[in-house]
């Protein structure tokens, strides 16, 4: 089976700062991969580069065999990559239903077709507040809404940027269950994470990034076994 996402030699800059320096890794269909590393290591930038929100200076990004680097974000979204940003970024003045409708795209072959009703089954909280403006929801509810909104585009791959950051431990547990449920639906997920406990619970494989360079790729079990790597790059 060919890789779903294949990144190689990816370079990206913010102004003069060289954030990504030849990042490369791949992930298969139906896989959950955790991109791990400290703050500022390049996790978010990698996701933004895949999404076309940060223009890569060099390198290749292949999605389902197709090169996508340098394309517009909306085109990348339309071929089946969904993006859930770190700071949630819901449309605070739009209601839950309206937030979902912004993300809505036509059904896609070979992936689950999401409707508001199906999403409300997955996120029962959202179903109880369909007309509530996004700004009047709690942080955990907002995080669920961003994920639901992205799913409305029927993506094949979801980029989840730090889904557990700033959430109460009890909500983090719920988030882990949600990710596993999505994996059960056959969705591929690339998530960035600092929390090893969380990543260990949901991911099949991990990649560690440090100062814009990938230092480790392997299964979650391999990472758990390798204390030296964890101590060096994750400082736990």
């Amino acid at each position: 089976m060919s890789a779903l996402l294949e990144i190689s030699g990816l370079d990206a800059y913010y102004g003069r700062a060289h954030i990504l320096q030849g990042v490369g890794f791949g992930m298969g269909r139906g896989e959950v991969l955790a991109l791990m590393g400290r703050n500022g290591a390049g996790k978010s930038t990698t996701m933004k580069a895949v999404m076309g929100l940060v223009p890569p200076a060099r390198g290749e990004i292949r999605f389902d065999g197709q090169r996508i680097e340098g394309r517009e974000p909306f085109e990348i979204a339309r071929i089946g990559i969904g993006y859930v940003p770190e700071e949630r970024r819901i449309f605070s003045e739009l209601s839950v239903m309206e937030n979902l409708s912004v993300g809505q795209r036509p059904p896609r072959e070979g992936v689950p077709h999401w409707t508001p009703e199906r999403l409300f089954a997955l996120f029962p909280n959202l179903g109880r507040m369909r007309d509530r403006p996004g700004g009047a929801m709690s942080g955990g509810e907002q995080q669920m809404l961003t994920i639901a909104r992205t799913l409305m585009g029927n993506p094949r791959l979801v980029l989840l940027d730090e889904p557990s950051e700033g959430l109460a431990p009890v909500i983090v547990e719920e988030m882990a269950k949600t990710i596993l449920a999505l994996k059960g639906e056959g969705l591929s997920i690339l998530l960035s994470e600092q929390n090893l406990h969380f990543a260990g619970n949901v991911a099949d494989r991990a990649a560690i990034i440090e100062k814009g360079i990938i230092r480790f790729t392997g299964t979650m079990a391999e990472l758990k076994a390798d204390e030296a790597i964890r101590a060096q790059y994750l400082s736990v």
Partner: peptide
């Protein structure tokens, strides 16, 4: 209308609207 919803969404966060597949 959908156009109106998209406009209101873009008023708050245009980058996010693009990342959701809307031709900005």
């Amino acid at each position: 209308t959908r156009w109106g919803t998209l406009v209101r969404a873009a008023t708050q966060d245009r980058e996010m609207v693009a990342a959701l597949g809307v031709n900005q």
